[in-house]
Computed example of a mutant assay.
Amino acid sequence: MTGWAEMNTFGLLPSALIGAVASARSMTPMAAIASARLAHRAMPGKLILLDHPLFKFGALAMGVGELFGDKMKSAPDRTVFLGLLARVMSAGIAGAALAPRGRERTGALVAVGTAVPLAYLTLAGRKRAMARVGQTRSGLAEDAIVVAAGLAVVRLALRGRR
Rank of each mutant, 00 (worst) to 15 (best):
R137A: 13
I18Q: 00
I18M: 06
L158M: 05
A124T: 14
T122F: 09
W4A: 00
T79V: 15
M89V: 15
A149V: 08
A91D: 06
E104I: 09
L50V: 04
I48L: 15
L54K: 13
F55E: 02
M72V: 11
L50A: 02
A59V: 03
R126W: 14
L67F: 09
G65N: 10
A149H: 04
E142Y: 11
A131F: 10
S74C: 09
E104G: 05
K127P: 07
A75W: 11
V110T: 04
Q135A: 11
G134M: 08
P44Y: 05
V116Y: 04
S26T: 10
W4E: 00
K56E: 12
M89H: 13
T9G: 06
G95F: 03
P14N: 05
T2P: 03
A94V: 09
D77G: 14
A39V: 01
L123T: 13
A131E: 14
L47Q: 11
G107P: 03
E104F: 08
A111F: 07
A75V: 08
M1V: 04
A144N: 09
V64P: 01
D70Y: 10
V64I: 15
G150F: 01
T114Q: 03
F68I: 12
G92V: 09
F81D: 07
A149E: 06
M89I: 15
A32G: 00
R105I: 15
R103W: 13
